[in-house]
């Protein structure tokens, strides 16, 4: 199978959906000739023109709110927010408007929009350009929240998100943009709300998502050499959540480690822990549920500090050994 990058996969998903459905359009800062801050949309303006690939002023509230207004009147906007940290500027429009319209209006409104935004640390951009804030969106009923870890998932999930009739927050991993992976030439989608068991194993379940999925897989491969058999469940979409896959995996392995880049306190990992504690899988647990997550600090600038503010392979490995101890 051919290999393309995560960024190319996202571009393909957008372009294919824009060819397929004339109501899909794309707007955001510097997405036109510049090609997006991370080069995701290079060339799209040449194919679709400035009406459907709309360069916006730096106005996050207007971008997200106009997406909601376009969506509720029958368009299918994709809004790019240059860094996911800046969604905060438009959070009223996302959380108080787009997310709630359908419910407030008794089910009569439909808001099919995608907010794409790069998340995560590792670029040296420090505290205001490096966060993983998925828990905020997961806490707002009415939003769907997706975060792919591979080019294959990125393309298939984004196509599903664009076709979905709800506001979807699509969190991209900026350190993965240049990572290549197999993506078929032919049409496919990945449904929202279905986790992917990226590696099967007998001894311990790691539930993870986003960039951490790759780190967990590498750790699992290393531990396999010692005969420690780790299962890696990549949630892919946080809302809706594939509870069944998580519960079934923990029932099988009897051990649960949750790994996410976002800060630990009030993180979505707590929700996963509670889900398992409150399920039949609880009776299969041979050890407490453990989390390896971001420290409760803003992301620092210094590379060593930055690397250690979020989970490292060493911390993940130590936690696995502790749990199986």
């Amino acid at each position: 199978m051919r290999e393309i990058t995560y960024a190319e996969a996202i571009r393909e998903a957008m372009s294919e959906e824009m060819r397929r459905d004339p109501s899909v359009f794309f707007m955001g800062e510097d997405i036109g000739v510049y090609g997006g801050a991370f080069g995701v949309s290079v060339g799209m303006i040449d194919e679709f023109g400035p009406e459907r690939v709309r360069d916006t002023p730096i106005s996050e509230a207007a971008i997200i709110g106009a997406a909601a207004g376009a969506a509720v009147t029958g368009s299918r906007p994709i809004a790019e927010i240059q860094f996911s940290d800046f969604v905060a500027i438009g959070l009223d429009q996302l959380g108080n408007q787009a997310a709630k319209m359908r419910y407030m209006f008794g089910g009569r409104a439909q808001v099919p929009m995608v907010v794409r935004a790069p998340a995560g640390s590792g670029t040296g951009a420090a505290a205001q350009h490096s966060q993983s804030q998925e828990a905020i969106y997961c806490h707002i009923p009415g939003l769907k929240v997706v975060t792919p870890s591979t080019p294959y998932d990125a393309k298939g999930l984004l196509k599903s998100a664009i076709r979905d009739n709800n506001p979807v927050v699509f969190l991209e991993q900026k350190l993965l943009y240049r990572v290549k992976g197999p993506v078929p030439e032919e049409e496919y989608t990945v449904p929202l709300g279905r986790a992917d068991v990226k590696r099967t194993g007998r001894d311990l379940t790691i539930v993870t998502w986003g960039r951490m999925a790759g780190m967990c897989l590498e750790t699992a491969v290393r531990l396999a050499e010692e005969g420690i058999d780790v299962e890696v469940v990549d949630l892919r979409s946080l809302v809706p959540l594939d509870k069944e896959t998580v519960v079934e995996s923990v029932k099988k392995t009897g051990h649960l480690l949750i790994v996410h880049e976002a800060v630990q306190s009030a993180g979505y990992g707590g929700e996963i822990a509670a889900l398992v504690a409150d399920s039949e899988a609880f009776f299969y647990l041979d050890a407490p549920i453990r989390r390896v997550a971001g420290l409760d600090v803003p992301i620092p600038y210094n590379p060593t500090l930055e690397r250690n503010a979020v989970p490292t392979p060493e911390r993940i490995e130590r936690a696995v050994r502790d749990l199986l101890g």
Partner: peptide, 22 residues
């Protein structure tokens, strides 16, 4: 729609304008 947030409907109206334009 009415709106519980002061200024909340202004971007939404603007987005409806995009649909018309497209």
């Amino acid at each position: 729609g009415a709106n519980g947030v002061v200024g909340g409907g202004i971007p939404i109206a603007t987005g409806a304008g995009i649909t018309i334009k497209l």
